[in-house]
């Protein structure tokens, strides 16, 4: 094949795939600005004739979207900060501190990865119900405060910290906690950003557990609220697309801004071992 033809084919295929992949997102954005009813015309209009914010106004004024947004923000931010603390401490200990039972404990954690989270959901619900925590932010935050994936990610990275650095600090008489805060944490900044972005995205997008644990509307996160709205307003496409935009834009923006960190985490996390 001629190189020019080949180049055309490759780039043409890329353009076609990308257009196909992005179309649903473009369409979501376009329809969210349409007048009520406009989206249900045939043929479907590609762009709104008279762009309006009516759907967004309706969402925030009457559908409680502001509340859901705040709930999502509070829950996802809390999970990110708390799990970052737990996972970093544990990941560093597994990588750099010598103690009896280290390999065995780590092995148990990695082994637990084969158990799907849903197996724990029913007893977890009962546990939190008897503790009086169901339908509170804590019901979603507490179980997400540590993750094997996060510990694994930090461990992989922390193994690269030179041991002499830590030994030198120990010789100077620094305690383990001080070494962790003053020597280790600054070195781990990149992986902390990676883990933070990962955790926030997962927390924001999570659906099944929040759906189970948050039983009252006042605590709904965006995905739970949107799913419930979509069952009431099946025909109101404009409103639903605006709801999708509000839910998706924050995570898309976060990903675009910190893409480099996110993709590194994806690759690090996929190299098991």
């Amino acid at each position: 094949m001629k190189p020019r033809v080949h180049a055309w084919l490759v780039n043409g295929a890329l353009v076609a795939c990308t257009a196909l992949v992005l179309f649903p997102l473009f369409w979501m954005l376009s329809v969210s600005f349409m007048q009520p009813g406009e989206a249900n015309n045939l043929p479907p209009p590609m762009l709104p004739l008279h762009p309006t914010l009516a759907n967004y106004r309706e969402l925030f004024a009457h559908a409680g979207m502001g509340r859901y947004f705040a709930n999502s923000l509070i829950i996802s931010t809390s999970i990110t900060l708390l799990s970052l603390a737990c996972n970093t401490l544990a990941g560093y200990a597994f990588a750099k501190l010598r103690f009896a039972g280290r390999e065995k404990t780590f092995g148990v954690l990695i082994g637990a990865l084969v158990i799907p989270a849903q197996v724990a959901m029913l007893p977890l619900f009962l546990l939190l119900k008897y503790a009086g925590l169901i339908n509170s932010y804590w019901a979603v935050i507490l179980p997400a405060m540590a993750s094997v994936f996060g510990i694994f990610l930090v461990r992989q990275y922390a193994r690269g910290i030179p041991g002499e650095l830590l030994e030198a600090a120990r010789v100077d008489g620094a305690g383990e906690l001080r070494i962790f805060i003053q020597v280790v944490l600054p070195l781990m900044k990149p992986i902390l950003v990676t883990l933070a972005v990962f955790t926030f995205l997962v927390a924001w997008n999570d659906f099944m557990w929040p759906l189970i644990a948050l039983t009252g509307q006042q605590h709904y996160t965006l995905p739970v609220g949107l799913a419930s709205l979509s069952r009431e307003h099946v025909q109101d496409s404009g409103l639903m697309m605006a709801g999708a935009v509000v839910t998706v834009i924050p995570v898309l923006a976060l990903f675009l801004a910190l893409q480099r960190y996110y993709l590194r985490g994806l690759l690090l996390g996929s190299v098991k071992g």
Binding site: V21, N205, F207, L226, S237
Partner: peptide
């Protein structure tokens, strides 16, 4: 661009899909 759908929220894009 090709990766973008991965970071989106399942529920939100499922709503788009239904439409």
């Amino acid at each position: 661009a090709l990766f973008a759908p991965v970071v989106t929220t399942v529920v939100a894009v499922a709503v788009i899909w239904r439409y």
